[in-house]
Simulated scan of single mutants.
Amino acid sequence: MSEVLVSREGAVVTATLNRPARRNAMSAALVAALDALLADLAADPTARVLVLTGAGGHFCAGLDLGEVGDASGDAATRLAAQLARNRRTGERFAALSALPQVVIARIEGSAHAGGLGFVCGADIAIASADARFAAPETRRGLVPAQILPWMVRRMGRAAATRMVLEGRTLTAPEAAAVGLVHQVVADAAALDAAVAASIAEILQGSPLALAETKRLLAALGPVAPAGYAEAGAAAFSACATGPEAKEGILAFQQKRKPSWAR
């Protein structure tokens, strides 16, 4: 079964991240399927809305740490693989944001790490009350390289700074208070209703005007300065292939504190 389920009703496309046993963590197969969908949508003038959501009551738990922590190959091979993966991650968030369609993130459960990139790259983010948001990279010996500029754009630098340095989990009301999401509703049924209401409002706008409005929003300024994406990829790669990431990922998998935690 595909790790991204795609359905369409008229001009509305729904993409469901489909690894519920892993809280929809981003495997190589999942992101390849998502990248293909984003490329198709970028060239599809008949689609007007993309709803991005997750299966099994979760949105996305970020990168699959089993793949991030893969120790196969020599040091140079591992570093090159991490560098390529992180570059593609940044490109994916940019591609999502640049779609001519209005993108709605429908969020339940976990929206962690790279999942926050999807939340912040979307145009509109709506969450159920059980949603939880975290940027726990530093607790794993990693850095929030490619999600950070998107978080800053959505939340502002002060709120994003506290979130990535503390690494703690925010509740849905806390996420709304700092601007990470636009709306919080009671449960999954109310979430479906809120997303449907947002779609109905969006479809009152003309396709060309909506797409041009998104282009104007992008023209207000880049998400990150020139060179940031490469610097972020290099920083992530250096950390991901180092001893602290090995310890942090192992501690996470073993459900214990890493050696540096007090």
Rank of each mutant, 00 (worst) to 15 (best):
P136Y: 03
G90Y: 00
V51A: 05
V68L: 01
T53K: 15
A229N: 02
E212R: 14
D64G: 11
E166M: 02
T46G: 10
V31A: 02
A172P: 04
R23M: 14
G10E: 10
F236D: 02
A21P: 00
L30C: 04
R140Y: 09
L191E: 06
A231L: 03
M151E: 06
R22L: 07
P20S: 10
A98T: 05
E9Y: 06
F133E: 01
P207M: 14
E247C: 13
A55Q: 12
G114M: 01
L37M: 11
M151F: 00
E174M: 14
A21K: 03
V152A: 06
P20L: 08
M163V: 06
L50S: 15
R19H: 07
A127C: 13
A175W: 11
A127D: 07
L116C: 10
A122Y: 12
N86L: 03
G54S: 03
A233E: 12
R85L: 13
S259K: 10
G221K: 00
A29R: 15
E137Y: 14
F133H: 08
D192N: 14
G156Y: 05
F118V: 03
G56H: 05
D187I: 15
A190I: 11
I249N: 10
L63H: 10
Q183E: 14
N24Y: 07
R8S: 13
A95E: 09
A190M: 06
A160S: 15
P144K: 12
F236K: 01
L216S: 06
A209E: 10
G117Q: 01
S97P: 07
A28K: 09
V119W: 02
R88D: 12
Q253G: 13
G117A: 01
V102G: 05
A80W: 04
A160P: 08
E244S: 10
A186H: 09
S7K: 00
R19V: 05
A76W: 02
A129S: 12
G179S: 14
L17M: 06
L180I: 02
S97K: 12
L5Q: 14
R48F: 05
M26T: 09
A81S: 03
A194C: 12
L170K: 11
D192W: 03
V184W: 02
C60T: 00
R92G: 04
V119F: 10
R88N: 05
E137V: 04
V152E: 05
R88Y: 01
A233Q: 10
G56T: 00
A122S: 13
A189C: 00
P20Q: 11
F252R: 12
D192S: 13
A113S: 11
L96I: 11
V6R: 08
E247K: 09
S237G: 11
G66R: 11
R19Y: 04
D187R: 14
